[in-house]
Write a protein that binds this DNA or RNA. Structure first.
Lengths: 168, 168
DNA sequence: CTAAACTTTCAAAAAGTCTTGAAAGTTTAA
DNA sequence: TTAAACTTTCAAGACTTTTTGAAAGTTTAG
């Protein structure tokens, strides 16, 4: 397999993976494209590489910047904007964890808190069972929350090697 | 908030969360519905509770069974099939982790292995950079893989309490 | 200024995903 | 058997998400 082909395979696979995790395929592909590009790329470079429109590149690259995965770069003496992706996969993972925690874990925890305050006789079998189910999810979510916090603060070494020994 | 309303809020929120993680909203709602139902439910019960068609219930409940999150139950002297969801949230989490590992981690690892075998001069700067990026992802994925394995084998206690102390 | 170079927006179209419901299939009681 | 009760399938339609591309907006060099 040639380099160009290998890159393209990787970009496709990353796009497919992303779409299974609720991330727009093009956004994941753009991320993969920049991730394996040694140089920052311009909008036109990306349009050409993925065969997509200017508007599509613009919207998805902006979302990648919102996620903190891509940055604008300027080349001296060039009016075009270039885009660069973080290359340290551990930083990327932490950033994604941080964002998903903020965007998805925190909102659901609010709902869980509210519904756990259901009114009525706390001894009613049905209410008791419901509240207990919800509280089990809340404990789980709260642990996930703390674990993600720890992960975000942790050094690469925590994950790459360190953690596994603890389970042996 | 009354019990019925609280259940409905929870079901909605679970559906929304699911859809952000690439899980069909109805499937997530059905799961939530059964998760908070003390009794197994029939197809008709579910159709009525979520206001959806028979075909929709059938397809999504089958997928939930594929994921190992829902089981058929039979009531003695009743021809209808009833469906029951695992109530232990730790078991649910482990099961989802196990399935996603099989469905998503393993396929991407195959692709990564292939593309890392790109042909050409191993000293070429471009090839070297690409292979190194891919290998960083492979190391990450392989660690995630092992961590999930460990998690699937672990007792509830590992996650609920045990792990956090290790980071203090 | 002005015009060229570049970026952003967003309504409409395309593509993708989910749902319906009626027909086909299966099981069971009698 | 038969027919009623129940489940499954899947083509067509509904809905959702993504993409396009042209127009509007912005920036900069001269």
């Amino acid at each position: 397999m040639k380099l160009a082909e290998a890159k393209s395979e990787f970009i496709q696979a990353w796009g497919t993976l992303g779409s299974k995790w609720g991330i727009n395929r093009t956004m994941a592909q753009l991320h993969a494209l920049l991730f394996v590009s040694p140089e920052p790329m311009s909008t036109e470079d990306m349009m050409e590489a993925l065969n997509i429109s200017r508007g599509n590149v613009n919207m998805n690259i902006r979302e990648l910047m919102d996620w903190g995965l891509v940055e604008k770069k300027h080349k001296p003496g060039d009016r075009k904007e270039y885009f660069w992706a973080e290359k340290d996969i551990w930083k990327v993972t932490k950033q994604v964890a941080k964002e998903r925690k903020k965007r998805e874990l925190e909102p659901i925890m609010k709902v869980l808190e509210q519904v756990s305050e259901v009114e009525g006789d706390k001894k009613d079998k049905n209410i008791k069972a419901f509240v207990e189910s919800i509280n089990a999810i809340r404990r789980m979510a709260s642990n996930a929350d703390k674990t993600l916090d720890t992960m975000v603060k942790a050094e690469e070494n925590w994950f790459f090697g360190g953690i596994l020994k603890l389970f042996k």
